[in-house]
């Protein structure tokens, strides 16, 4: 487990390299990496870990934003239950996804940080929970914020409702909550999104 101090020291390095990583990291590495990219919890304090796609600060912003958008309020699964953060990261590894769409996801995180500084004169990671809620309410009323949050929500919905073979919707928790009857047959490993192109000879 990383310590908070060492993670924060690495932020600059990750900022410098992140776009290079987004362009070069292939889909093969996805599942194994994402398993390692989750946040660490220590002494009741969550430590946000940098990874191939996000700095620790960015990781914190997106995870806390996801939590506001789809809260753990006792009604259905939380974003952790459905691995919404893992799914968000997985999108960056998709080589079929357009580069500008990936950069848009990152830009939204950075714009959120900028807005935090503009509105509260402090970084997002220094905001209280109440301030984070206020910040999300604020950006939801801006043009860029509404569009970006909407995109983030769509990815949360994917984590809620697509097949658990993608390491989301764990134990079908999303389907169970929605009383959704899945279709049959469900995908097997060789015909998942990451493998089907090879399976059908389209790669």
């Amino acid at each position: 487990m990383h310590t908070e101090e060492s993670l924060l020291n690495n932020i600059d390095k990750w900022v410098t390299n992140r776009r290079k990583f987004i362009k070069t990291v292939g889909i093969v590495a996805v599942y194994s990496q994402i398993a390692k990219l989750q946040s660490c919890h220590s002494s009741n304090k969550t430590v946000y870990v940098a990874n191939d796609y996000l700095t620790a600060k960015q990781a914190e912003i997106i995870q806390k934003t996801q939590d506001v958008l789809f809260p753990n309020d006792g009604n259905g699964p939380s974003v952790t239950d459905i691995n919404a953060y893992g799914h968000f990261l997985w999108v960056f590894s998709d080589k079929r996804k357009k580069q500008n769409e990936k950069e848009y996801l990152l830009n939204g995180i950075d714009w959120t940080e900028e807005t935090a500084i503009e509105n509260y004169q402090k970084s997002f990671h220094q905001l209280t929970d109440k301030e984070i809620h206020q910040l999300v309410d604020f950006i939801a009323n801006t043009n860029w914020g509404k569009d970006w949050l909407s995109t983030v929500l769509t990815l949360i919905f994917e984590a809620l409702a697509i097949d658990s073979i993608y390491n989301v919707n764990k134990n079908n928790v999303g389907w169970t909550w929605l009383q959704h009857q899945n279709g049959s047959p469900r995908p097997t490993d060789d015909i998942t999104y990451t493998k089907i192109f090879k399976t059908i000879g389209a790669e």
Partner: peptide, 9 residues
């Protein structure tokens, strides 16, 4: 056999 009800795909 390559078809499933995978909404992502």
């Amino acid at each position: 056999e390559h078809f499933s009800k995978d909404e992502l795909v």
